[in-house]
Design a protein around this nucleic acid. Structure first.
Length: 665
RNA sequence: GCGCCUGUAGCUCAGAUGGAUAGAGCUACGGACUUCUAAUCCGUGGGUCGGGGGUUCGAAUCCCUCCAGGCGCGCCA
């Protein structure tokens, strides 16, 4: 759990006010709170006296009774009534009128920065997400990663933390090697040794076929071919060395290929408003000698061992405790960083990279700009042709906290990385190396069948696999959702609106699940546009905007003043105020525990509260008068101001979720 | 074998720190639009919170155990 410093927000504030008084009265350290099951009981409740009964050897009703008496004599500022219900609950009624006056004033005054805190100080947060192998198209599982990381980054930025987002490009890994090998040697015209002219190879990619899609199929095909053709395996080995070594036409070709595919990945996620500050290339980590420095550091600080015997003979390993029996027989648990042939493992590179993120490593990348992104910010990239860190306008790395967004299957290697940091003596950095682990996206049996997967079990979900080419490609999915959104609309949509709804629907779908919940992707489920969806959120915001627009068109003057707040709010007014008041503390909690689903849940609650208020501002009454038609000027002003306050907070919530806040649909 | 995660309504999922009658959405059925935007709202139906023990005044939540599913434990990345 991260510790987030921040100002106390409304619900927290009220709770703390109450807790303060109660702690004094009862002489306890902590006061637990909960919400009563029925509204008439109150808005806030505590069962503290029930747990106190035993140790104090007194009936809970008696303890609570005395506490209530004292509370009545000394009411916390935002509480208007305290009651007692058996078997010993203390219930509090909030002074909604007062809370509403303060809350709306504050929001209208602060506008779009309402609820924003500037508590982050100088603590820099470094977030790595996406990091898709640049050898094929992205699929929906990758999107979950991107959208999670992007949302977390938005939350930290909002809270005032200097935040840096990077996308790691593994351009020297076997996946890229496979596709390069396939391009060069699978189909004629074959690559001729000694030449640096790759024109004919590039021409294999049809012009009307996106490169990432082409490589998706090619990569899957290559997996089959390489199985039965030993000469391809040899070629692959050769190409691996050339790419790792650099300084060879094939290496340049691989880089070019990866660059083009990265570009298509960036275009894909940009459709969901996902952007980065920096692209970090693995080839640059290798070429800048990050590992050599790390190797020395590891040997110097300890935590690394050269094996002279046993199964890992000839390797440099990090000891992780003995031998274990696994399903594949008896294995050493120690993590190999340098193989007996001298080459280094992925985890070794990861350790070096993690050290760089914290600014521990003396080495640095060279940097240049990649280009401007759709949101107007420049994207940087590491590059051997770039400038040194001190020569550019930005400073990358040197973070105080590092969040790596990687799926749950990589928990073990991530632990190895932070454990290595610990063993090297970087205790604080190990503590602040956070693996944001989330479960994968699988395909429902139906979805798998639609995609043409063979042998689907009707009960079991199917893992997506780049190797076999089964998966829902991100761009396909985006297009499908867009098509559905346009179809479902009762009027023609502007392109920008259709795109915004599409993005909101997809982001919401991928964010609403808890981190440990596997998403079993099903087309019907994922293409929903009613109920608990991103579309619902957009409608609530657009509806509020329309009301305000209409009020303006009719020249309705609604000048906010605290005097317009009714003494007694209706149920739906009160629920909406309650939802609005929770905004800031929800954002804070999201940053603390990195559980973004809490934010989507809140967004839905907030939108629901508004929609209910809009449909039934006077729940008891048979007639519901549109706000702009209200005769009672004071009430009209109040309700329109509440709409405005909602619109501001909903807009902020949407932006935190990376969704455009539509004024009109 | 060891470790981690999951199991809640027909389906998809929420349910910090243990609290009062376990909630949404979808689906089904029945209602509400000469509109401040109905991708909405209202109503009805729907549950042995995987099973069994335990701790507690109180357990979906904590502990033990069993069952079912997923993942991890590579000189892969």
């Amino acid at each position: 759990m991260l510790v987030i410093r921040g100002e106390r927000e409304r619900p927290e504030m009220i709770r703390e006010e109450v807790a303060e008084v109660l702690k004094r009265i009862l002489g306890v350290e902590e006061i637990p709170f909960n919400v009563p099951p029925q509204r008439k009981m109150g808005d806030l409740s505590s069962a503290i006296c029930l747990s106190l009964a035993k140790e104090r050897k007194r009936p809970p009703m008696e303890i609570a009774g005395e506490a209530v008496e004292q509370l009545k004599a000394n009411l916390p500022p935002h509480i208007q009534e305290v009651t007692l219900t058996p078997p010993g609950y203390i219930n509090f009624k909030v002074n909604w009128s007062r809370l509403t006056r303060e809350l709306i004033s504050e929001i209208l005054e602060q506008g779009e920065s309402a609820g924003k805190s500037f508590s982050g100080g100088n603590e820099k947060v470094f977030i790595e997400h996406t990091s898709v192998n640049p050898n094929k198209a992205m699929h929906i599982g990758h999107l979950r990663n991107s959208v999670l990381g992007d949302t977390i980054a938005r939350v930290f930025r909002w809270l005032g933390y200097p935040t840096e987002v990077c996308n790691y490009i593994d351009d020297t890994g076997v996946q890229v090697v496979d596709v390069v090998t396939a391009l060069l040697y699978l189909n004629p015209p074959l690559f001729e040794e000694g030449t640096s002219d790759f024109k004919s190879v590039w021409q294999k990619i049809p012009e009307d076929h996106p490169i990432d899609y082409f490589c998706w199929d090619l990569y899957a095909r290559f997996q089959n071919e390489v199985e039965k053709d030993p000469s391809l395996r040899e070629k692959r080995e050769e190409i691996l060395h050339r790419i790792e070594g650099g300084n060879h036409p094939v290496s340049d070709f691989a880089k070019e290929l990866a660059t083009r595919i990265v570009q298509s990945h960036l275009e894909t996620v940009a459709r969901l408003s996902v952007f980065y500050d920096l692209l970090n290339w693995e080839s640059d980590i290798i070429r800048q000698g990050f590992w050599e420095t790390t190797f020395e550091l590891l040997k110097e600080k300890g935590g690394l061992r050269f094996e002279t015997e046993g199964p890992n003979e000839g390797c440099w390993v990090v000891p992780f405790g003995g031998i274990a029996e696994t399903s594949n027989g008896v294995r050493s648990l120690d993590k190999i960083l340098v193989r007996s042939n001298g080459s280094i493992t992925y985890t070794a590179k990861d350790i070096a990279y993690q050290l760089w993120k914290f600014g521990i490593l003396e080495k640095d990348f060279l940097y240049r700009t990649w280009g401007k992104q759709d949101h107007g910010e420049v994207l940087w990239t590491t590059s051997m042709e770039g400038k040194e860190g001190h020569q550019i306008s930005r400073r990358f790395g040197k973070a105080d906290r590092v969040i790596n967004v990687i799926d749950v299957r990589q928990t073990y290697p991530q632990q190895v990385v932070s454990e290595c940091l610990r063993q090297m003596g970087f205790e604080k950095e190990a503590e602040r190396s956070i693996h944001l682990a989330y479960e994968v996206v699988n395909l429902s049996p139906q979805a798998a069948r639609i995609l043409g997967a063979e042998e689907t079990d009707e009960k079991r979900s199917v893992a997506m696999s780049g190797r076999s080419g089964t998966g829902v490609k991100a761009k396909d999915f985006i297009e499908m959702v867009k098509k559905k959104v346009v179809e479902k609309a009762d009027h023609p949509l502007e392109q920008s609106v259709a795109n915004a709804l599409t993005s909101a629907a997809i982001r919401y779908y991928l964010l609403k699940f808890t981190l440990e919940s596997q998403i079993v992707f099903d087309f019907d489920e994922a293409l929903k546009t009613t109920g608990d969806t991103g579309v619902y959120l957009e409608y609530a915001h657009a509806r509020a905007s329309s009301i305000l627009r209409k009020a303006e068109e009719r020249k309705i003057d609604f000048q906010w003043g605290k005097g317009v707040v009714p003494v007694q709010l209706t149920d739906t007014e009160r629920d909406l105020v309650g939802a609005i008041s929770e905004f800031a503390s929800v954002v804070m909690k999201t940053a603390e525990n990195l559980r973004v689903s809490r934010l989507t849940e809140y967004a839905f609650d907030l939108a629901t509260a508004f929609t209910n208020f809009y449909e039934h501002p006077d729940p008891g009454s048979k007639v519901q008068t549109p706000f702009i038609h209200l005769r009672d000027e004071s009430l009209r002003t109040f309700r329109l101001s509440l709409v405005r306050a909602f619109q501001i907070v909903m807009g902020n919530t949407l932006r935190l979720l990376g969704m455009p806040a539509l004024e009109k649909i």
